[in-house]
Design a protein around this nucleic acid. Structure first.
Length: 721
DNA sequence: GGTAAACACCTTTTT
DNA sequence: GGTGTTTACC
């Protein structure tokens, strides 16, 4: 394979990026401009043209999916395996680093990774220990505080002692949390990043080693990096300047969880010699869709600047549908999808995108009634299910008796007569002795006289865990997991649980056994315990929400989840001020801009046809609301939009949307129908929402497009309609 | 220890 | 309004 094979299939800008000289490079890659392609080909270029070995390259992504895709495409392009190459997520790579250098990282060899759920449990336990009221110190907020500081690179001891008593207490909790994690050998997600950074920073020889090893560092979705992630990258590349980043400031939608778009600006300052390459040719969408997206995003400030273009045709205008209410909106979308199918399209080519998960319900119900298969993204993933987490907790406790979090989780699951009383005694003893719950349990079992129910149960539990631990020394991973699930009593416990749910859980448990049997740690070649790696894998890669759904189905997801995907037919629904943009963003210019970028991401998912919809009336938290159409619709030039009606003044033929009957009944006797479009001399155009009274008392409530809700006396208002 | 009633919550989410 | 979680009671 030679250079031409890497270069030929690319456009000029992509070539420029792939063959760029070895110095800091920023590729501003617009949506659908082939950014993964550039990354993959750039790596191939290093291997074939610059003669680098695979282990000289570090490629970082945010999700496992992106990492897997990159590796797959690379191997496809090169026709060889690139196992020696470090391709992975920030967290995965940090984990790998820490495992290999646990000593320098000041971590126990068998340290365990915990997910945010584990973290929250620990915080709750800690608050109880410290006698703090959860009302006053909400665990979620504590978690947010701790993670926020870790992502900024701050340890509790680095924080100045605040005067504010609330902050001071927060800091104290953070300190206690760190202490607990250290003692239990537990590492949370943010800790992986922070610890990896500190380890390199504080071990000169290690840093030198990796700086020499990673001659090229490539980063995907750079706009999503947080402070520590960027600091870590900088540490590795500030000498060589060989940092190749791909990103799009217009698609930065994770500011709320610590991502810093500013890192793009920092990069330009920290690497003064850098080059910038813009990928602006879009291969995904029609001209009209792109034009709409460009106009929308032009309303944002401080952009690095970029305008997408395409050689594709303009295509159809974007359709805008003003639904009567949320059910009507769902009805509309599903009708259009039915049409798409009958025109020969696939369900899997269509996606309904919404701002918040709660919105999926209406669409699911509608899809269900018409019997159309669909798939909702999001929700609990495999390794996050409680039965799985319980099974893992047994494995972890047996592997590491100091893991109090796991101890708490399973000591009485399935129930074995270890109630609140016994546990409280254990916790008190553990605190008094400053030891783990496990040690406290051992002490109790050894010292307490008699044979109360609780004591026997405790002894049995200790024995069980010891047995499981003995097993771990000798058996294969698959057998360890199998035996653990069976002998812990979990399998029986879930089997006898009510019907379907129990069955599903038992099934998941056997799926876990399968996963263990086929777990292949080849990607992590050190001679570390396979079980430890498996457990870390479970935390770092939570798996899919649903199993392989091979079926051709309509795709439902949040706009966030849609990033990186594309569909021929896209619906962006709930385009209402207060919903999208979200209520809390309306008054904050910074957050409003992020909402706009989210909308931009949504628009650019569509390849052929895009529907935008909003409801004129929506039930929100049990209350009827009359939102106004989203400002984002107004930011798209009218000539790109086409208003669609299924109903309205013309006629509403066969299908009165089911909800009209369910809502307030229309009054055939009155002069106006609900949903009817009317015109007022002063207020302009609007839609009738409610009618009441008759004759001189007849009043109608109208939602005017420009001025919002008004009640009008019919005989006075001179409404046309 | 398991169930029902009361209660809080209500963007977005990957690792 | 709907859901998930804590509390109260048997």
């Amino acid at each position: 394979m030679d250079a031409s094979a890497i270069i030929d299939s690319l456009n000029d800008k992509q070539r420029l990026a792939v063959s760029a000289p070895n110095r800091a490079t920023l590729v501003l890659a617009g949506a659908g401009s082939g950014k993964t392609r550039v990354l993959v080909h750039r790596i191939a270029w290093h291997l074939l043209i610059n003669r680098l070995a695979p282990h000289n390259i570090l490629a970082v992504t945010f999700t496992n999916k992106a990492a897997n895709e990159m590796r797959g495409r690379l191997e496809n392009l090169l026709g060889i395996s690139v196992r020696a190459m470090w391709i992975g997520t920030f967290h995965g790579l940090a984990h790998r680093l820490l495992r290999q250098h646990a000593k320098q990282a000041k971590l126990p060899d068998a340290f365990q990774v915990m997910d945010s759920d584990d973290q929250l449990r620990i915080i709750k336990r800690l608050l109880k220990n410290m006698n703090l009221d959860e009302e006053k110190w909400p665990p979620k907020q504590v978690q947010w505080f701790i993670n926020g500081h870790k992502e900024e690179g701050h340890r509790a001891r680095h924080l100045p002692e605040p005067g504010d008593p609330f902050q001071r207490q927060m800091r104290a909790i953070y300190l206690a949390y760190e202490e607990f994690c250290d003692r239990s050998g537990l590492v949370d997600f943010a800790e992986l990043l922070l610890r990896a950074h500190e380890t390199l920073r504080d071990n000169a020889d290690l840093l030198q080693f990796y700086r020499q090893r990673f001659q090229q560092v490539l980063v995907d979705e750079f706009q999503d990096t947080n402070t520590v992630q960027y600091a870590w990258l900088r540490l590795l590349t500030e000498e060589s300047n060989n940092l190749f980043i791909v990103g799009d400031d217009d698609q930065s939608i994770y500011g709320w969880r610590g991502a810093k778009v500013e890192n793009l600006h920092h990069f330009q300052r920290h690497y003064p010699d850098h080059q910038v390459i813009r990928l602006e040719q879009n291969y995904r969408s029609t001209g009209h869709i792109l034009s709409a997206a460009n106009h929308l995003i032009a309303n944002n400030e401080n952009r690095l600047g970029k305008e997408l273009w395409t050689e594709a045709k303009d295509g159809e205008p974007l359709a805008v549908y003003a639904a009567f209410n949320e059910q009507d909106e769902a009805y509309f979308a599903v009708e259009k999808i039915k049409q798409w199918i009958s025109d020969g399209g696939l369900r899997s080519e269509t996606a309904i995108l919404y701002r918040s998960n709660a919105q999926s319900r209406q669409f699911e119900e509608r899809l269900m009634t018409v019997g159309m298969p669909y798939r909702v993204y999001g929700g609990l993933r495999f390794f996050e299910r409680q039965e799985i987490k319980n099974a893992l907790a047994y494995l972890r406790l047996a592997a590491n008796r100091g893991d109090d979090a796991s101890f708490e989780r399973i000591v009485n699951t399935p129930t074995r007569g270890l109630g609140v009383k016994t546990l409280d005694d254990l916790r008190n003893l553990a605190r008094a002795q400053n030891c783990s719950l496990w040690q406290a349990a051992q002490l109790t079992a050894a010292q307490t006289q008699g044979s109360s129910r609780g004591l026997n149960a405790l002894k049995a539990f200790l024995k069980l865990i010891e047995d499981l631990a003995a097993l771990q020394a000798n058996e294969t991973l698959g057998d360890i997991v199998k035996y653990t699930i069976e002998h812990s009593g979990l399998l029986d416990y879930y089997r006898q649980e009510k019907q379907e749910r129990g069955e599903a859980r038992a099934e998941n448990l056997s799926e876990l056994i399968n996963a263990a049997k086929s777990f292949d740690a080849a990607d992590n070649p050190q001679n570390l315990g396979l079980l430890d790696l498996f457990l870390a894998h479970a935390a770092l890669e939570a798996g899919e929400a649903q199993g392989q759904s091979e079926q051709d189905c309509v795709q439902l997801m949040t706009l966030h989840a849609a990033k990186g995907l594309e569909f021929k037919l896209v619906f962006i629904v709930g385009l209402e001020d207060g919903l999208f943009p979200a209520q809390s963003a309306l008054l904050d210019p910074g957050r409003l801009q992020e909402e706009r970028r989210l909308c931009y991401v949504g628009l650019t998912r569509a390849m052929q046809k895009l529907y935008l919809s909003y409801a004129e009336s929506r039930r929100l938290y049990g209350k009827e609301t009359f939102p106004r159409p989203s400002r984002f619709i107004r930011e798209i030039p009218p000539h790109l939009l086409q208003e669609i009606r299924l109903r309205g003044q013309i006629d509403r033929p066969t299908a009165p949307a089911p909800t009209f009957a369910a809502g307030s009944p229309t009054r055939p006797s009155g002069s106006f129908r609900i949903g009817q479009t009317v015109r007022h001399a002063k207020f302009g155009e609007g839609v009738v929402l409610q009618c009441e009274g008759s004759g001189a008392q007849e009043r109608v409530q109208v939602n005017f497009r420009d001025t919002g809700l008004k009640w009008l006396i019919v005989v006075l208002a001179k409404l046309e309609g």
